[in-house]
Design a protein around this nucleic acid. Structure first.
Ligand SMILES: [Mn+2]
Ligand SMILES: [Mn+2]
Ligand SMILES: [Mn+2]
Ligand SMILES: [Mn+2]
Lengths: 222, 222
DNA sequence: AATAATATTTAGTTTTAAATAAAATTTTTC
DNA sequence: GAAAAATTTTATTTAAAACTAAATATTATT
């Protein structure tokens, strides 16, 4: 069994490796450990053939490493949704619980909750859930603060790290799937005014950065 | 957070401490570690005030230690029942999964599944589930191989360690709650013949040792 | 009561995981 | 090409959890 720590390194590398290799410093910052610790772990991961590691050049997941990472991410997102929809956890609490349990549930556990939920595609924050075979759907979204005035948009996903912010967004009703129109954008990174459910709401810029949206299309995904 | 290992020592001491203090050797045998390892751990547990430890005399849980143990046992049994009744795990698989997850679920998780199941009193093997406040119900049962011929009995609980045996018992329909009549007991630890659901079944002595029963009373507990 | 057998503890190591600081090295930037 | 930044190396540290072998205590046996 891979340790929780090893699994968290893999998840982090997966998350960071969009544009090619991931640097030691990036991982170091994300996990809040020293660079030396990262180098040490990268050697171990490399010995386990979970990553391709080139000194000074950065690190990439191997196919094997990707499979493991996607499995953990799958566990995480299935758990989040299950906690929310079947165990009545509030949205802001699901991340922490899932981030712990993701390392300990069996494949069978994950498959069972997946079945019960009917193979859902998205977690409660709007993140895509990898399939059992490891396929992760992608979409292009952008933060609400970058949308032009007048656009009809749909909330696609929320950043899941700040639980206080999530509690606030849930309170406001700003959840994935909600349709919005951008009425106004104050200059100098000022608040964004949106209309939804026939009400106008003013959303601070810092908050808007954590709300990711897609341009409206006729069919509503998810 | 108490480590998984610490938690398993506590559970073991709880299980063994019926008649007073538990000896190093008993723990050593149960956990399959050396006596020296046990002594080492007992000192640590004692420093954490989870046990009262007297060199050479044995060890007892403190009130604090009991509270922690009962919490883990509660997690274990709630999980077993939830896995069986809500996630469709088969009986022989629940123990292993619960024995792992019991250390990692939050109190909130335990409370949520407890609520959903309506505060059940017994796990799928017939073991009592401690209440949230730490009350563990007790009952007197005895192994099926010690019951006299002619007795009307009810299966109260099954030993939960041997998963192959459990699969067999489930197959046979020998589950907690089932009513039996003992028709015959072969001498020299021979098999026990029982009648239930209008059928006669012969149960080997080794198996009968793992089936714990209570004498029939009018009301059916559970 | 002395001795033998058994149980337990102590002392000293081992393993493994995961981290660190400080020094050395490589890469990048200016 | 020098300075700055990133990265690795080296040598330690911490911690949990185990082990063996030797020493000691308890208990059972004669
Ligand atoms: Mn995690
Ligand atoms: Mn999420
Ligand atoms: Mn356990
Ligand atoms: Mn059980």
């Amino acid at each position: 069994m891979l340790s929780r720590s090893v699994q968290d390194y893999l998840k982090t590398i997966f998350k960071l490796q969009e544009g090619g290799a991931v640097s030691t410093t990036e991982i170091s910052k994300e996990l809040k450990v020293s660079g030396a610790s990262v180098t040490g772990m990268l050697k171990r991961l490399s010995a386990m053939e979970l990553v391709d590691y080139n000194s000074y050049k950065g690190v990439k997941l191997t196919e094997k490493g990707k499979v493991v990472s996607l499995e953990i991410i799958r566990h995480h997102r299935l758990l989040e949704l299950y906690l929310k929809d079947h165990l009545e956890f509030s949205l802001e609490k699901v991340h922490e619980e899932a981030c712990r349990l993701e390392h300990y549930i069996s494949e069978e556990f994950a498959d069972k909750i997946d079945d019960i939920m009917g193979h859902p595609q998205f977690d409660p924050h709007g993140h895509p859930i990898p399939t059992k075979s490891g396929v992760l759907s992608e979409f292009e979204d952008k933060p609400l603060n970058e949308v032009e005035v007048g656009a009809n948009i749909q909330i696609k996903r929320l950043s899941d790290t700040d639980s206080e912010l999530l509690a606030y967004l849930e309170e406001m009703g700003l959840m994935p799937g909600v349709q919005l129109t951008v009425l106004e954008k104050a200059p100098f990174n000022g608040p964004v005014t949106v209309k939804f459910a026939n009400e106008e709401k003013i959303i601070g810029n810092e908050i808007a950065k954590n709300i990711f949206v897609i341009m409206n299309c006729d069919e509503i995904p998810e």
